[in-house]
Design a protein around this nucleic acid. Structure first.
Lengths: 342, 342
DNA sequence: ATTAGCACTCTTGCTTTTTGAGTGCTAAAA
DNA sequence: TTTTAGCACTCAAAAAGCAAGAGTGCTAAT
């Protein structure tokens, strides 16, 4: 597939990089100045013309310069781009930005997304650590009033959710006791995905005293367990999208698409490589056809646990962003591993 | 100040209402058709001309109809607008929208804001219940690993915050015990605003064993107490602003302004009336000069506890939105009161 | 105090012109 | 065969011009 002549590679690469920098189509003269090649502009024009025919470049209209096509970006990312280390500056920013949230995995991921988004002027979607085997570690029921209590649920990946719930009857010591019995026998140590409405109902029914007292509590447990799954997706810095004139008013549509949340998990999950770049129309969703997505997985304790994805215009600075994403997933993985395993 | 003739009032009122409806400037003929007055268009023109001179109306350009000026809106809101009940439909929507979050004050406010924003196509900023006298009701420290524990803090207004924290040494029973001692004696029952870094440090120093073990925990308590204050502001439905063509591209700037969060508390606090309308340039911030803000306070157990504010274009439907806001603050206040006091 | 009539002003939408960057092609040169 | 100079051609974007229409403000009559 790498059948391009060296000169073509040089030209393609220059077009991509310059276009990323300026956003303007590149003409033959400009290109000449840029690369410092010692041929005439006519020669360059011929080469560009061929690159167009091959599908790597395209022109907005007949009398304009060239811009990279989707295929052009792809070739650039796969073959031409240098594999840089992360900028010193970016590294510092990332470290400074996330250090404050070091101990708390959920906050850490949220913070990391925020920092990365700010740094790259992209939107960031990420998943809190989790994966297949989230098990419930601990449940506490803290009485708040006579009829209400705060239910707190803690999972093996260090995520905590809470919810205030109201009882129909008074919250007696007996009820508390029975609640903890059920919890200890049927919930603790189980995967969160196993907690279903029916399993909770049968558990509640097995209780000595009034089982109806237990129901609202069990329902709340279910709801929390469920929300563990749902709320894993975190969106950060989505308003950065407005700063790119590439999108124009389309930014609004994209913004609203991202804010729907539901489709996002499909966007960043289901990659096989540790880092993947999806360019333009390669995306599943029409709404992303002018965007590129860079996703990387992070792993906790040696196993894949979540991923962090960046969304920005196709014309994004791949060469500098990719190392940042790589670095971030790396460090975040290490930090969470450290926080959880003692 | 109510020195306008009846006819002028009728005209001003019609201009405001029609402009709110269509967004187009109103000409003399259209106005005539609208009000059904039995005079000629020339007369109406004279009246409009006077209203312009008085500052209640203005024209985008010489040959266009009139639109309300800021002063015009102000007069309309203060004197002309009918004091309606909330629409049956809106009431239903609100009730349906917030019922699911009934038990949990923080979620309730967030949800209420979301619903109100959706209903009115405005952005909604609100403050979670709190006010001066938030006291700390309960603190739990749930061990997670040997070196880390989840700190959970619950306040009198039903808000719960949690944070995972790491210790430098092992988390022994002794440390737990001493921690709870400090908590019981120095923290529980105190207002959150009293929890300062120094008071925590002295508390930690008073402990038998290694006081350094306690420090990270105390720091975390501080941080949580502080975050009670900071995170009270909730922003909802801000992307609705994009649906108003009034803002044009200015919507982006406004959106970014709102997303900064910091200035928002100044926007919705500091009102004296139970419900206040701030129109256009009356706002403190330049970024809001084309917006109006409707703020209402809600009270929990008889005392002011927080507020809910709507932000939309100056050309918003005051007459129908105001009753909705009034109703929502009312019902939210009642619900939280019920949830907290048993 | 109203009203009819009319001249005047400006936006809006449309078409036309101009300009300039950039190409593609051809024919000559290397 | 590859490169280059030269030139005609294309097309978007900016500028300029034009016609229509809505709406006003003023004046003089009612």
């Amino acid at each position: 597939m790498s059948e391009l002549s060296e000169r073509k590679k040089l030209i393609l690469s220059a077009v991509v990089e310059q276009y990323i920098k300026t956003g303007e189509p590149i003409g033959s003269k400009e290109l000449l100045a840029l690369t410092g090649m010692s041929v005439s502009s006519a020669t360059v024009r011929n080469e560009m013309s061929e690159l167009s025919a091959m599908g790597y470049l395209e022109q907005p209209h007949t009398s304009a310069g060239r811009v990279p096509s989707q295929k052009g970006y792809r070739y650039y990312v796969d073959n031409l781009m240098k594999d840089r280390e992360i900028d010193e500056l970016n590294r510092r920013m990332i470290e400074a930005g996330i250090s404050s949230a070091a101990g708390d995995p959920e906050r850490l991921i949220a913070q990391a997304g925020e920092v990365l988004a700010e740094l790259t002027k992209c939107a960031c979607i990420s998943t809190a650590p989790g994966g297949d085997a989230v098990i419930i570690r601990k449940i506490e029921l803290v009485p708040v009033g006579i009829h209400s209590a705060m239910l707190v649920l803690l999972t093996s990946n260090g995520i905590l959710k809470s919810r205030l719930c109201r009882l129909d009857c008074e919250l007696t010591v007996k009820i508390l006791e029975e609640f903890y019995n059920i919890v200890d026998s049927c919930i603790i140590g189980k995967p969160a995905s196993d907690i279903s409405v029916v399993s909770m109902q049968t558990a509640a029914a097995s209780v000595d005293s009034d089982p109806f007292a237990m129901l609202p509590l069990m329902a709340a447990v279910c709801e929390l367990a469920r929300s563990m799954e749902d709320s894993r997706i975190i969106l950060g810095g989505s308003s950065n999208l407005f700063s790119h004139k590439d999108y124009g008013v389309g930014a609004i549509e994209l913004f609203e698409f991202l804010n729907k949340r539901e489709p996002l998990s499909a966007v960043i999950s289901g990659i096989k490589e540790p880092l993947d770049v999806i360019i333009g129309k390669e995306n599943l969703y029409r709404q992303l056809e002018n965007s590129s997505v860079i996703v990387a997985k992070y792993s906790v304790g040696g196993r894949d646990s979540g991923s962090i994805g960046l969304i920005g215009p196709t014309r994004m600075d791949y060469e500098s962003i990719i190392p940042s994403v790589k670095y971030l997933t790396d460090i975040v993985g290490r930090m969470i591993t450290q926080a959880i395993e003692e």
